[in-house]
């Protein structure tokens, strides 16, 4: 039950961020679904004690690949799908704790939270890079498949 609740919340949050940055209304639903699916993947990683960093990496790979597929399908730029879907992966809680501990002078905790923020952000960036690699592979595979089809006919 809690998991279904989380997935609904993820959908709503992505929809909300889509409204703020004004993505085309035809794209809102698809972006919401990408956010929901990738948040589900994140929750699965959490269920196996994979940690926040690995979860964010898997999530951002999913976002990169699914956005590219949605972009090709809907004929819209990929950023329209991947920026809103990413909103649930932003390390907002850790970033806030970092600022709070710095302001209160508790530098040891502050640095620990800062490292978490850097690691999560790095994982998301690496995830995008890996997703780009997968996208190129998918495009290459499609091209080869089409060539194969043409040769046979």
């Amino acid at each position: 039950m809690a998991i279904i609740g989380q997935l609904i919340l993820a959908y709503l949050a992505v929809l909300g961020f889509g409204l703020i940055i004004n993505i085309p209304h035809q794209a809102l639903n698809v972006a919401g679904w990408i956010g929901t699916i990738t948040w589900g993947a994140y929750l699965i990683v959490q269920a196996f004690d994979g940690g926040v960093v690995l979860g964010s990496l898997i999530g951002s790979i999913g976002i990169g690949v699914l956005s590219s597929i949605a972009a090709r399908d809907k004929k819209m730029p990929a950023i329209i799908f991947n920026i809103p879907s990413l909103v649930s992966f932003v390390p907002g809680s850790q970033a806030y704790q970092m600022v709070r501990n710095f302001a209160l002078g508790q530098y040891r905790q502050a640095v620990s939270f800062m490292l978490q923020v850097i690691m999560i952000t790095g994982a998301i960036a690496l995830g995008f890079l890996l997703a780009e690699l997968l996208n190129r592979l998918i495009a290459f595979g499609r091209l080869q498949w089409r060539r194969h089809q043409i040769k046979q006919s």
Binding site: Q6, A13, L15, G16, S88
Partner: peptide
Amino acid sequence: LQLVGAALVSGPLMIMFR
């Protein structure tokens, strides 16, 4: 509608994070 968006972002994400 953008304000609705802001409401949708802030509430759900608070529940998801905390």
